[in-house]
Design a protein around this nucleic acid. Structure first.
Length: 506
RNA sequence: GGCCCGUUCGUCUAAGGGUUAGGACACCACCCUUUCACGGUGGUGAUACGAGUUCGAAUCUCGUACGGGCUACCA
C-alpha cells in the first residue's frame, strides 16, 4: 500500500515571494488536495545572516491571498512540529554525528581563509572552480587527515568546525524524477557539501533530508535549481533513512524572465510584478509591487501560474482551483523552462474579471476604490457601474479609471475635442436637450437616446456631431462606456447640471 | 571550465511514429461600435541543425549548436 500523501513548501524567509515560489506552492497544493493528503509549510531559516524581519508573516499573507493555506505550519501547528528549522537545531546534529560514526561524513576544521586559498591554489583552466571533493579532501584539515587524537583535542577546545558529507569517489547516483525520468550523476564530480555549519545550524542539504523524513513527506517538489544537489540528498537518504523511504522527487522547470531566470530586476525593468504581494525591504525600504496590488485577482493569478508549464491536454485555459485540483498531474508538467508573458497574464485576469460573480467582484472593487479615496458608495449604484464597465477592465485598478467620473463632476474637459466644431446651433441643441431631459419621467438610457435622436432630427443636426460633446460634458473626455448608460447612472439632476456647467465653458 | 537540465509560431503550448503541425496571448486586416474598449471573423507565423532507425520521424537514437541552472559554512 502506498503511504499517505504529504507534501511541503519550504521557503526561506529572505524577502518577497516570487512567481516561481508561488507556482511551487500551487503544484504542491494541487497534488496534496487531489490525493486528499497534507500540505505542510516549513520555514527554512537556517541562515540567520539572511533572515529578514517580517518575511515569514509576509509568506503567510501571500498564501492566504492565493487561497492556499497549509494544513500544518508554524502558525497552525501540527503533529510534526516545530515547523521552523531554527527551532529544530538540536535535531540535526545527532544525524550528522551518526553519519560520521558510519563513515559517511567527517569533521572539517578549515578556516574560511584556508578554503579560499584552496580555491585559488587549485584553480586551473580545466577546473575554474575547484571543489572540496574526494581529490582535495585529503589535502585539507579534517578528521580524515588529522590524527584522531588531534581531532579529539580540537573538538574539546571548541575549535570552529563543520561536518561535511564524504561523497564516494566512484559511484553512479540515480533517481527517478517524476517530470524528467531517470537522472544520473557521477559522484566523482559531486563535492563534500557542508552538512552542519560552524554555528551548529544545518545547511539545506542536511535539514531537507532530515525534516522530510521526520515529517513523513511522500513527494518533494522543488525548483529545478536544486537538481545539481539532488545526488547529495539521495546519498543522505541512503545513509540515514534508506532509499525505500525517500520521497518521490519532481524538479519543476524554472520560470524565466526576458533574460534567464526571472528576477526582481526584471520587474523594475519591464514594468510587471514578480512578487505575489508587494514587498517592502525593511533594510533598504525599497518597495516592490506585487500582483495583488497591481490589480490581479487571486483566481487569475493561480490560473495563469498553473498554466505556466502545465496543461491538461485539452484546449481549456481558464480553470477554477477546484478544476485544477481535479485535473492536475505532475507527470504533465513540462521539463523545459517557461518564459513569463505579462500580456498573457493580463488576459487571464481579464477573463476572470468577466467570469467572476458580481458580488465577489464588487468586494474587490470596493477595496480598489477605497485606496483611491472613494468610499461609502451605495451598493446598488456600484453594482450598476460594475456591470457596465467590467468588460473593459483588465486589472482591478482599471475599475477606478473607468468609473471615477461617476463620483466626481468633471472640472476639466477635453475642450480640444469639442471646440473646433462648436457653434451656436449646437449650443441651442443642448439647451433644448436640457429642457427635454427635465421633462423626462422615465430616466432610462434607451429613453434618453430616443429623445436625443428626436431632437437632433428636429434640429437637423447629425447625432454624431453632438454625441461627442455630450460625452465630454458628462465625463470630461473621449472615453467611457455608452453615453446614455452613463447618463442613466448619473441621474437626471447630475446629468443636467453637468451639461449646464460645461455649456458655460465651451 | 566542469556537471546537470532543456529546445514546436515572437510568447505559453497541443499533437502518446502516419494531422493541410491544432489552440491561446501578442500582432495585422475587416466587421460591430457616431468615444475608447469589449466582442466577432479572417490572416501572418514554428518542429534549432546534421546523421541514423523506419515504408513513414516534431515524436525513437546519436552528434552539433543554442538556451538555462548549479558549481558557498545561501536557500
Amino acid at each position: 500500500m502506498s503511504k499517505r500523501v504529504r507534501v511541503r513548501f519550504a521557503p526561506s524567509p529572505t524577502g518577497g515571494l516570487h512567481l516561481g515560489g508561488v507556482r511551487t506552492v500551487l503544484y504542491n497544493y494541487l497534488f496534496a488536495k487531489q490525493h486528499k493528503g497534507d500540505f505542510v509549510l516549513r520555514i527554512e531559516d537556517t541562515d540567520q545572516s539572511r533572515y529578514v524581519q517580517g518575511a515569514e508573516e509576509y509568506i503567510f499573507e501571500c498564501l492566504k491571498w492565493c487561497g492556499m493555506e497549509p494544513d500544518e505550519s508554524p502558525l497552525k501547528g501540527g503533529n510534526f512540529g516545530p515547523y521552523r528549522q531554527s527551532e529544530r537545531k538540536e535535531i540535526y546534529r545527532k544525524y550528522a554525528e551518526q553519519l560520521i560514526k558510519d563513515g559517511h561524513a567527517y569533521y572539517a576544521f578549515d578556516t574560511l581563509e584556508e578554503l579560499e586559498k584552496m580555491r585559488h591554489d587549485f584553480k586551473t583552466d580545466q577546473n575554474t572552480s575547484p571543489q572540496y571533493d574526494s581529490n582535495i579532501r585529503m589535502k585539507m584539515r579534517n578528521s580524515l587527515t588529522v590524527s584522531s587524537e588531534d581531532v579529539k583535542n580540537l573538538l574539546e577546545k571548541n575549535t570552529p568546525h563543520v561536518i561535511r558529507i564524504k561523497i564516494p569517489g566512484q559511484e553512479t547516483v540515480s533517481f527517478v524524477d517524476m517530470i524528467r525520468g531517470e537522472v544520473h550523476f557521477e559522484t566523482s564530480v559531486v563535492d563534500d557539501k557542508v552538512l552542519l555549519k560552524a554555528d551548529g545550524m544545518p545547511t539545506y542539504h542536511l535539514a531537507v533530508v532530515v525534516d522530510d523524513y521526520l515529517m513523513k513527506i511522500s513527494h518533494a517538489f522543488r525548483g529545478e535549481e536544486w537538481l545539481p544537489s539532488a545526488p547529495v540528498h539521495i546519498l543522505l537518504w541512503k545513509y540515514l533513512f534508506g532509499l525505500e523511504n525517500m520521497p518521490q522527487w519532481a524538479h519543476l522547470p524554472l520560470i524565466l524572465g526576458p533574460n534567464g531566470k526571472l528576477s526582481k530586476r526584471d520587474a523594475a525593468k519591464y514594468g510587471f510584478p514578480v512578487f505575489a504581494m508587494s514587498w517592502a525591504d525593511p533594510k533598504t525600504g525599497e518597495l516592490t509591487e506585487g500582483f495583488k496590488e497591481k490589480g490581479f485577482l487571486p483566481e487569475a493569478f493561480i490560473n495563469l501560474l498553473a498554466l505556466l508549464g502545465w496543461n491538461d491536454g485539452s484546449e481549456q485555459e481558464i480553470f477554477t482551483i477546484e478544476e485544477l485540483i481535479e485535473k492536475f498531474s505532475i507527470e504533465r508538467v513540462h521539463s523545459g523552462g517557461a518564459k513569463f508573458d505579462y500580456e498573457k497574464a493580463k488576459w487571464f485576469n481579464h477573463e476572470w474579471i468577466k467570469k467572476l460573480k458580481i458580488e465577489n467582484l464588487q468586494l474587490k472593487v470596493i477595496e480598489v476604490l477605497k485606496v483611491k479615496g472613494l468610499s461609502s458608495i451605495e451598493d446598488s449604484l456600484l453594482e450598476k457601474i460594475i456591470i457596465l464597465i467590467k468588460d473593459r477592465c483588465t486589472l482591478l485598478t482599471d475599475f477606478y479609471d473607468q468609473s471615477y467620473f461617476f463620483f466626481n463632476t468633471p472640472d476639466k474637459w477635453d475642450v480640444d475635442a469639442v471646440k473646433p466644431k462648436w457653434n451656436e446651433s449646437k449650443k441651442l441643441f443642448f439647451a433644448e436637450l436640457i429642457r427635454d431631459f427635465e421633462l423626462t419621467p422615465d430616466w432610462k438610457a434607451t429613453v434618453l437616446e430616443n429623445n436625443f435622436k428626436e431632437i437632433t432630427a428636429v434640429n437637423e443636426i447629425k447625432p454624431g456631431e453632438v454625441l461627442l460633446p455630450l460625452r465630454v460634458m458628462l465625463v470630461g473626455g473621449k472615453f467611457g462606456p455608452g453615453v446614455f448608460n452613463i447618463a442613466e447612472i448619473l441621474g437626471k439632476e447630475e446629468t443636467i447640471s453637468r451639461i449646464e456647467k460645461a455649456l458655460k465653458i465651451f
